[in-house]
């Protein structure tokens, strides 16, 4: 007798569970999909939503780089290459090369911590895809530029004041491990 009861119980369970399951899937059918359609069909660029401390692809502001080579030395995998030559005409030292190989970079952030002026910085940029790995080497020196020397008594040019300020703020707020 118990088998007969189980038999009809099984039929009832099948019908009621399918009924309930179908109502749940139908209610999901009218819900908003949670998919983010990266990269083109999104309300806001992902870069804009990332936090300031996000360690993206490195950038260097050559105008406030002193050429101290601290970043090159501290880099554990030697992805930063800096070339400095003395310019015979102006008798000053010029950058001839400042390359960062993004392929190698592991985004450890040691270089930006070591930088005395805050010129090497992590950006929010993370989309590095390109057809050739050589395209991932970022060249920051296109023509020879002189090294930055901080002026005694502070900067006078508005443009330079801003740049130094940005670097200083970056150092204080983001690059300092303790901050």
């Amino acid at each position: 007798m118990s088998e007969v009861i189980t038999y009809f119980q099984n039929i009832k369970d099948t019908v009621s569970s399918i009924f309930e399951g179908m109502s749940i899937t139908f209610s999901h059918f009218v819900r908003k999909p949670s998919t983010v359609q990266y990269p083109d069909r999104i309300a806001q660029q992902v870069q804009d939503t990332l936090p300031l401390r996000y360690r993206g692809i490195l950038e260097v502001d050559m105008d406030i780089c002193t050429g101290c080579l601290a970043c090159e030395r501290v880099c554990p995998i030697n992805c930063i290459a800096i070339g400095i030559e003395r310019n015979a005409e102006t008798n000053q030292r010029d950058f001839t090369l400042f390359d960062i190989d993004i392929c190698k970079c592991m985004y450890c952030g040691l270089c930006m911590e070591a930088c005395p002026t805050g010129s090497i910085r992590h950006t929010q940029e993370f989309e590095g895809a390109c057809n050739n790995p050589a395209g991932l080497v970022r060249h920051f020196v296109t023509e020879n530029v002189p090294l930055y020397k901080p002026k005694k008594g502070g900067e006078t040019e508005t443009r330079m004041i801003q740049k130094v300020d940005i670097g200083k703020r970056y150092m204080d707020e983001i690059a300092e491990p303790e901050s």
Binding site: F19, S23, I24, F26, S27, V30, R31, K32
Partner: peptide
């Protein structure tokens, strides 16, 4: 009754609807 169950499921979890 089925439609009521669907409405119940929707009201129960308060999802964002997208019709």
């Amino acid at each position: 009754y089925f439609m009521w169950r669907v409405v119940y499921q929707i009201m129960h979890s308060r999802p964002e609807l997208y019709l």
